[in-house]
Design a protein around this nucleic acid. Structure first.
Lengths: 142, 142
DNA sequence: CTTGAACCTCCAGTAGCTTGAGGATGTAGG
DNA sequence: CCTACATCCTCAAGCTACTGGAGGTTCAAG
């Protein structure tokens, strides 16, 4: 039986985050000691690991909730899980493209700022001047 | 003279976002019509473009605030702007690395899910099983 | 039995907006 | 000049995914 702190250490989460997950119904209400402290078993460790891992992969909590529901019903076709992953992949690729453009621009900014005065500084120019923009002007994603 | 809606269209922002920026002091209070509607000139258009662009480059509003303060005092050395950009570049490179690992993992998930039942689905397996994780288990960054 | 780390609940705050209610303004067409 | 209606206004609350703190209790070691 694990305390909440031990569970946090094992999964790399924070204690408050676990309580938050419980609050929003992503983690179940665990057993308690006489004194009211939470105690966790292996099922909860697995579940939280799943959540942690999915979060690190960029899944939103709602998507994770869907995935957890799916994995509770193993006889359903997995199309749904697949499409969630596909959606995720698409978003990741968009973010990558934007970040790569951003890196290029920032590298240029840093290289061209050679320690002059602000008035000559490319860092500010690049941000001021739209025509030098290498990125497309779409939404900034979540 | 631009209405707030026209300014929004020109910069690709939303009307409410512009009002929000005004509220937090990132945009100045503009002139108003007799009836109380906001009217913007070129200075505001430039400033908002700057903000939009910087946001798309991943700068936080606080960093943007710093940059705007800098660009209001063009006689200062630009070291400060440079160091902001450098900080940003470092973060971007970290995010890129994480996202690339993520893409690999998601691609694997999507390719290996061959339309079976949920119980056989790699998407859920990969998320369940830590040993298959290709990403490092660090913080998910903002 | 004491000590101190770890636990508890509840509440507020964070970023960066977004949405909605309920009402006023501005402008184009008739 | 008047009407319609898109756009504007303010204010307030809501969103995601946590994080931090206050103030108090429990647990395990020594």
């Amino acid at each position: 039986m694990l305390t909440i702190g031990a569970l946090a250490r094992k999964t790399g989460s924070k204690v408050q985050t676990i309580r938050y997950y419980e609050q929003i119904g992503l983690m179940p209400e665990p057993g308690r000691t006489e004194g009211g402290q939470r105690r966790y078993g292996d099922a909860e460790l697995d579940r939280l690991s799943f959540i942690r891992h999915a979060r690190q992969l960029g899944f939103r909590l709602e998507a994770i909730r869907e995935l957890l529901n799916l994995s509770d019903q193993p006889d359903k076709p997995c199309q749904e899980a697949d499409s969630i992953a596909r959606r995720q992949l698409k978003q990741v690729e968009q973010r990558l493209a934007r970040l790569e453009a951003l890196r290029t621009e920032l590298e240029r900014m840093v290289h061209e700022c050679s320690g002059g005065r602000t008035a000559d500084c490319r860092v500010l120019e690049v941000l001021r001047d739209h025509s030098e923009c290498l990125t497309d002007h779409n939404e900034i994603g979540a």
